[in-house]
C-alpha cells in the first residue's frame, strides 16, 4: 500500500505543476513547469515498473525543453495578456466540468488500480508476449521484442511520422519561398 501513497504524492506534484503552468503569466515559467510535469511523469513511469519509458521520457523531456525555450526566450512578447472573452471562457469551463464528471463515472467502472486487467482475460495478447516472447524472439527485454518483432509495423509507422515531421519543419522554416520556373513575372 505504501506504493500507492507514493503515487498519490507524485500525482499531486504533477497536478500542481500543471496548474501553475496553465495559470502563470510568464511564458518561461510555464515552459519550466511543463518540464517539471515531464520529469514527474518520468519518476512515475519508473515506479510503475516501466524503465524503458522512464529513460526515453527523461531524454525526450530535455530535448523538448530545449525546443520550447528556443521559441520563448528571445522574443519580445514573453508575457501573456489575458484570456478570451468572459462568456466564452465560462461556457468552456462548464463544458469541461461536465466532461470530467461523466468521465469519472466511466472510470469508476474500470477495474481498480493495480489489478492487472490483462491477466483476467483468457488468451490475451499480453500474456502471450510475456510467456512466449523470450523463446520466440530471444530478446530478454520483452518491450523491445514487442516493438521490433511482434508489432514492428507500429515502429515502421513511427519512422514515417518522424520523417514527415522533419520534412514539415524544414518546409515551414525555409528561408525564401521557391519560385516555380514557369511563374509569370509581374
Amino acid at each position: 500500500m505504501a506504493e500507492v501513497i507514493l503515487f498519490y504524492f507524485l500525482m499531486a506534484f504533477i497536478l500542481i505543476a500543471a496548474l501553475i503552468a496553465v495559470e502563470t503569466t510568464d511564458l518561461l515559467s510555464a515552459v519550466i513547469c511543463v518540464g517539471a510535469i515531464g520529469f514527474g511523469c518520468a519518476l512515475f513511469f519508473l515506479f510503475l515498473r516501466a524503465p524503458d519509458i522512464a529513460i526515453t521520457q527523461i531524454v525526450v523531456e530535455v530535448l523538448a525543453l530545449v525546443i520550447l525555450i528556443r521559441v520563448t526566450i528571445s522574443r519580445n512578447a514573453t508575457f501573456v495578456t489575458g484570456d478570451r472573452e468572459f462568456f466564452a471562457s465560462v461556457v468552456s469551463v462548464v463544458i469541461l466540468m461536465m466532461i470530467f464528471l461523466m468521465a469519472v463515472q466511466v472510470l469508476n467502472s474500470l477495474p481498480a488500480f493495480g489489478d492487472a486487467v490483462f491477466a483476467e482475460v483468457t488468451d490475451s495478447a499480453s500474456k502471450t508476449y510475456i510467456s512466449q516472447g523470450m523463446e520466440k524472439t530471444g530478446a530478454a527485454n520483452i518491450v523491445s521484442a514487442v516493438i521490433l518483432d511482434f508489432r514492428a509495423y507500429d515502429t515502421l509507422g513511427e519512422a514515417t511520422v518522424l520523417f514527415t515531421s522533419v520534412i514539415g519543419a524544414a518546409v515551414i522554416l525555409r528561408k525564401r519561398p521557391r519560385k516555380l520556373p514557369e511563374e509569370p513575372q509581374i
Binding site: 515498473r49 525546443i67 490483462f118 499480453s126 516493438i147 507500429d154 513511427e158 511520422v161 515531421s165
Partner: peptide
Amino acid sequence: VDPLPQAIVLTSIVIGLGSLALMV
C-alpha cells in the same frame, strides 16, 4: 506488468517530440 502499453507509449513519446517540433 503488461508490456503492450509500454511498447505503444514508447513510440508515442518520440512521435510527440516530432509533433512538438512541428508545432513550434
